[in-house]
Amino acid sequence: MTYYSGTLENLIERLCGLPGIGPKSAQRIALYLLSLPRDEAVELAKSIVDVKDRVRFCATCFNISEGEVCGICSDERRDTSVICVVEEPRDVIAIERSGAFRGRYHVLGGAISPIDGVGPDELRFTELMARLRGGGVSEIVAATNPNAEGEATALYMAQLVRPLGIKVTRIASGLPVGGDLEYADEITLGRAMEGRQEL
């Protein structure tokens, strides 16, 4: 069923392959792009190419970076003795936005998930270990997602790092601020209870 010319159809199909975009939104975006002035469309296309050409992974922490080493790794004011380990670059952005962490990061590139064929070897554990053996690190914060895969990844990492005598901590998970106690499920509540603190 082709309502559009081959060129437009091709664009819709490509947009459709993007995360979170279904056939309807793809069509809407394509028609919007079609209505843009030519130079605006070129700017957009150019920024996509630029991202591909200039942005890469930091050689140290594997966060996205414009240079060999990312802004965080090259920031001398940040604490080098604490490394926060996350699954994806977007997790770095989330934690940075909180402003609650002043150490450095390590991006694993995912979480262990055997059913998807992702084992420890598919993640950047070797690189993490090399960093730790370089010395100067006293604590690792496991900030993987609070789901089955994230927990397993954190536990695997703890096993790996413990023999080096480095402290491994896990971010607390619990009740969302502004949430209602009554609506929290027993597992979240259980976690929140375990992680309680003195007032």
Binding site: G119, E151, A152, L155, Y156, Q159
Partner: peptide, 13 residues
Amino acid sequence: AALASVIEPWNDA
């Protein structure tokens, strides 16, 4: 040889 360390993280859950 890594089997034990690959399995262990799932045991807890």
